[in-house]
Nucleic acid binder design. Sequence first.
DNA 1: GCCAACGTTGGC
DNA 2: GCCAACGTTGGC
Length: 160
Amino acid sequence: MPALINGIIMAYWLFKSEPETFSIDHLKACPKSTDSWNGVRNYQARNMLRDQIKVGDEGFFYHSNCKVPGIVGTVKIVRAGWPDPTQFDPDSEYYDPKSSTENPRWFVVDVKFNQKFSSIIPLQQLKMLPGLSQMPLLRTGNRLSITPVTKEQWQIILNL
DNA sequence: GCCAACGTTGGC
DNA sequence: GCCAACGTTGGC
């Protein structure tokens, strides 16, 4: 059974980021420890940002493409999908000339720092847990920067 | 709509 | 830096 907040179903997610670009410490240092999750340019992930991720949902913060990849903490969603401002900014590396304000192509959600674990939960450790074998993150070739997490998977990881 | 070529992700 | 796996592009 999904958890409820004010009668609304809440869900769990995993957000991947390269720590050299944007780490959990960067997020914590933002004003109100909150930032927009911008720069996602993949349609599957876009659909989750636009349609599925809701205020009150929670997410893991995952560091990828670094010495020890793994989950480093959690965030909370404080604003649901809205158009990614970087797509309209010609100076941004995420600028998309084919997008328009009338018909935006890319979306963000705003996430707020929640907690940083005392130590990282390495990918290597996650892979050894039988209860997590179905996590999209752990499936071969999955490169989505945002993936859903079940309540069961969420609990297993938080209890480590 | 097919599919080859190319680009990107990300663990190792 | 290598390379597997996947997404995107564009000719036809």
